[in-house]
Amino acid sequence: MNTTARAPAVQVRPKSSGGMTYMRRYWTLYLLLALPLAYFFIFKYLPIANILVAFKQYNITKTVWQMQWAKNNGWEFFIKAFSNRDFRYAVRNTIMLNMLDLVAGFPAPILLALLLNELPYRKFKRVTQTVAYMPHFLSWIIISQLALQLFAPTNGLVNMALRGAGFNTIPFLNESWHWVATYVFLGIWQSVGWNTIIYLAAITGINPELYEAASVDGAGRFRKIFHVTLPGLKPTIVVLLILSLGRILGSDFDRPYALTNKIVNDVSNVIATFVYTSGIKSMQFSLATAVGLFQSVVCVIFLVAANTIAERMGERGLM
């Protein structure tokens, strides 16, 4: 430490004056890192060994290494999973709900960001944004309760209004395909405002001269959106689309688990909820681990593939 302080100002700091001085100066940095690294090691790396349970006969009295290998060269539980009707449904539902989320939910924040960008009244814009971010801060348990009371068949506000207008009662949460639609809608409701943040930031990054030039050329509101704003958003859109495609077999737990009910189980059970019910609730640890492993492997493949495609298309990838 003292060598640097005493050195004349013109002299360049010694690049590496031996391991000892370096450690004397910076050992505290490693001390600071010790806790976070221990956290990652314990909670993120240690459980990796437990993935082996997927290939073994789970036995509560033995360690992972001592457990017996499963039949069929260890693939017993993967075979079991795929011959399990509930699991096949869970895969189907995961893909279906994610696809619907993608088709309906992905364009929504883009449209909303374009809309907010067109709003000329500053204060009103801020209020709209604040309100639109609000659902993001609610838990899925709360949202599920809000939906249950709002969409209740007899005394829910929406169905009372529908009946008042002469329509039939809609079983929003009590019939499979209505439930799917409500699920997708609530997903958009929860996330659309929050997801505009990135797009709005990208819009502010667009060169204002482009808009001026477009105005001089006589472009109206829509022309500017299609020829300036959207092209400016393209890189952001592509990156976020890749991320969503990578998650097409990924599954959230909180949302389907909070919104589901017994009547709609055949469309609401996704891989994450299947893992919970078969693993933690029914203690079939090997089966549930196998299912989880299958899901994460497919997810990584999808992410890498989507990334490669994007790079081929000439966009900046993620990795």
Partner: peptide
């Protein structure tokens, strides 16, 4: 960020 051991391996840990 890119991989996670999964629900059950974490539960067992």
């Amino acid at each position: 960020m890119y991989f996670s051991a999964g629900t059950i391996p974490t539960y067992l840990l």
